[in-house]
Amino acid sequence: MSILGQLTHPDTELSPVAPSGCLHVTVATPVHHINRWAKAAEGSQGPPTPVKTIISTFNTNTIRLLPRCTELASQASSYEISILGIQEHRCVHPDEEIRFTEVEGMHLITSSAWRELATMSAQGGVGLMVNSKAKEALRGVVSVSDRILTAEFDGNPVTSVIICYSPHNSSEEKEVEAFYSKLHQAVTSIPAHNFLAVLGDFNDRVY
Rank of each mutant, 00 (worst) to 15 (best):
A178C: 03
K52I: 02
K52Y: 02
D154S: 09
S121P: 00
I83K: 14
L117E: 13
I63L: 11
P191I: 00
S20Q: 12
E116W: 15
S166W: 00
T12F: 13
L117N: 05
Q185N: 10
T53D: 02
N169P: 01
F179Q: 02
S143K: 12
K52H: 05
I148E: 03
C22Q: 15
L108I: 12
S111I: 14
S111P: 04
V25D: 05
S20K: 11
H9M: 11
K174H: 12
A122N: 15
P19N: 13
T57Q: 09
T101Y: 04
L66H: 11
L14I: 07
E104N: 12
K135H: 07
S78M: 06
G21M: 06
P94L: 10
K133T: 13
V31A: 12
H93M: 10
A197E: 03
F195R: 11
G5I: 13
E175Y: 07
H24I: 06
V27E: 06
Y207W: 12
S145Q: 06
N194W: 06
I55C: 13
T110M: 15
V176H: 01
K133M: 09
P16G: 08
V25H: 07
E80S: 14
G155Q: 03
P47T: 13
H107T: 14
I86P: 09
T49Y: 05
I109V: 14
P191N: 01
S56L: 04
Q185M: 02
V176S: 04
V142A: 01
S143R: 15
H184F: 05
A113F: 12
I163M: 07
F153Q: 03
I148M: 03
G21R: 06
V198H: 02
E97V: 13
A122R: 08
P48V: 15
L14H: 11
R139G: 01
